[in-house]
């Protein structure tokens, strides 16, 4: 099925749950609210014509600098192994209620990307019982991939500003690690 047919089928079955649909550059894209994500995902997986049985990845995007509402977006990329088509679900997550329902009951592989989204963006995943950091150390504070998190706290020291090295290192990044403590 090509992208237009997929969108048509989805709209005819679950049209009221979708916020928006589009076919851009050949990709089928569906915009959703967090509340309707699980129902639409279940339909996509179980319907025999669509049969999206493969979760490719879950990405998070922070639209703070583009000043778009809602601020965060969770993007689910799904493939179908036997029908050879794909769909992209974009779930807008507002800043006031940063939480998304889990899809790990449909695709067990979702546990890792969801933990990463919690770690990097701070969005809580409802129903995911192992909500802990994945890539950063346990005691790290802050969510690195948010746009208001600094990339680095330290400027590069060259020979012309070597005397001011102490001023350049503003504040050591808090790692909460001391070698003896481990």
């Amino acid at each position: 099925m090509n992208s237009e047919e997929i969108i048509e089928k989805l709209k005819s079955a679950k049209g009221d749950k979708l916020k928006d649909t589009e076919v851009t550059l050949g990709d089928a894209i569906v915009h959703l609210e967090p509340g309707s994500l699980h129902e639409v995902a279940e339909f996509l997986k179980s319907d025999p014509d669509l049969h999206f049985d493969y979760l490719s990845c879950i990405s998070g995007v922070d639209y703070l600098d583009l000043e778009r509402e809602p601020r965060f977006e969770c993007v689910y990329e799904l493939h179908s192994m036997d029908k050879n088509h794909s769909i992209r679900l974009r779930v807008g997550v507002p800043e006031e209620e940063p939480s998304v329902p889990t899809v790990k009951d449909l695709w067990p592989a979702a546990i890792y990307p969801e933990r990463e989204i919690y770690d990097m963006f701070g969005l809580t995943i409802e129903g995911h019982d192992e909500q802990k950091r994945l890539l950063m150390p346990e005691e790290w504070e802050g969510h690195p991939l948010r746009r208001d998190y600094d990339l680095t706290r330290e400027k590069v020291a060259f020979s012309h500003n070597l005397d001011f090295k102490e001023e350049l290192v503003k504040e050591k990044v808090p790692t909460r690690y001391k070698p003896n403590q481990v």
Binding site: M136, P137, W140, V173, T175, Y177, P179, Q181, V182
Partner: peptide
Amino acid sequence: SQKMAPVLTRIYE
């Protein structure tokens, strides 16, 4: 990385 640095010192010690 920040998570690996204490492991590095432990191996060194």
